[in-house]
């Protein structure tokens, strides 16, 4: 066989493989959206779930998902920013640093159900936080930290050393060089990473079943007192998220329209994750344009 022919065959095989991947993806997304979207109405998105009767919505679950995501990022972003800056800018190349990196790798490959059970034993039971948003947010922080830390470290490492030299040679301290030169230059990558991790957190179910719980108490959206039991802002109330809701309906849902609710909720979940992914790209580019002042 001559080289040209081999080349053609190889190209064809590669196209075929890519085609398979795309086909699976499109089929999956298409199925979820086509079966789910017809059930997604404004009242579906805003009304509370119903345990026994048809016509329940996902309003509380949707709110819980976003609220939990917000709290998770609020806890995990500062920690991983600090850890990422340490690893990228300050850590010496020695065994301690290597050990930290390996720990992070291990943490990032922990199955989320293990993180959930750990969170259950430690926060829910030991610290007596109960099934609550705060337990869930901390468990998700554990789940999110390694990935976000790695992302921030990689984004910072992607900034050329010439930039660090430029900062230092201008008489900036190391800290100012990091915070005012390197971090801003890495910001687009960091923001993209945060939003992508938001997508993962948003779709996470296993870690939350045992921590944030599977019940959605009735919420009064007019009650803004975060210490009151029916306030949506209360972080000590149990909170079933969208992903957990889908899992629950499919395992023990007894409402007559269970499959429709499940399909609709799945479609909403998928759309939210898609929006996060597309948003990540857009936000990264937007921030990059803003700070670099390029058109």
């Amino acid at each position: 066989m001559n080289a040209k022919r081999v080349d053609k065959i190889a190209t064809a095989v590669i196209y075929l493989l890519v085609g398979i991947v795309i086909l699976i993806l499109v089929a999956l997304l298409g199925f979820i959206l086509i079966t789910g979207l017809p059930h997604v109405t404004w009242s579906f998105l805003t009304s509370p779930a119903s345990a026994f009767n048809a016509g329940g919505g996902i309003g509380d679950q949707l709110f819980n998902s976003f609220y939990l995501l917000f709290l998770t990022l609020l806890i995990s972003f500062p920690i991983s920013l600090g850890a990422g800056i340490y690893l990228a800018e300050y850590a010496k190349k020695n065994r301690v640093t290597e050990a930290i990196r390996i720990t992070i790798e291990v943490l990032s490959s922990l199955p989320s159900v293990v993180v959930g059970l750990f969170g259950f034993l430690l926060f829910v039971v030991q610290f007596k936080l109960g099934f609550s948003i705060i337990s869930g947010a901390i468990a998700l922080t554990f789940f999110n930290l390694p990935l976000l830390t790695r992302n921030i470290e990689n984004s910072l490492n992607g900034v050329s050393n010439l930039q660090r030299e430029a900062g230092l040679s201008l008489g900036l301290s190391r800290w100012k060089t990091v915070t005012k030169v390197v971090v801003p230059a890495a910001l687009p990558g960091i923001i993209t990473g945060i939003i992508l991790s938001a997508g993962r957190v948003f779709g996470e179910a296993a870690a939350l079943i045992f921590t944030a719980g599977q019940s959605a108490p009735v919420l009064n959206y007019a009650n803004w007192n975060p210490f009151s039991g029916d306030s949506p802002l209360n972080i000590f109330r149990p909170a079933e998220t969208l992903a957990v809701h889908i899992w629950k309906i499919n395992t023990e849902g007894i409402m007559p329209d269970a499959s429709q609710v499940s399909a609709g909720a799945s479609a909403v979940l998928i759309i939210a994750v898609l929006v996060f992914n597309l948003g990540a790209r857009w936000a990264g580019n937007y921030v990059y344009r803003r700070i670099t002042a390029s058109k």
């Binding site: 050329s160 010439l162 930039q163 030299e165 430029a166 900062g167 040679s169 201008l170 008489g171 030169v181 801003p184 230059a185 700070i291 670099t292 002042a293």
Partner: peptide
């Protein structure tokens, strides 16, 4: 102060 071999402006205005 120092100027380097590769021009290294910050990616700002």
């Amino acid at each position: 102060g120092m100027v380097f071999q590769q021009p290294n402006p910050f990616p700002f205005s």
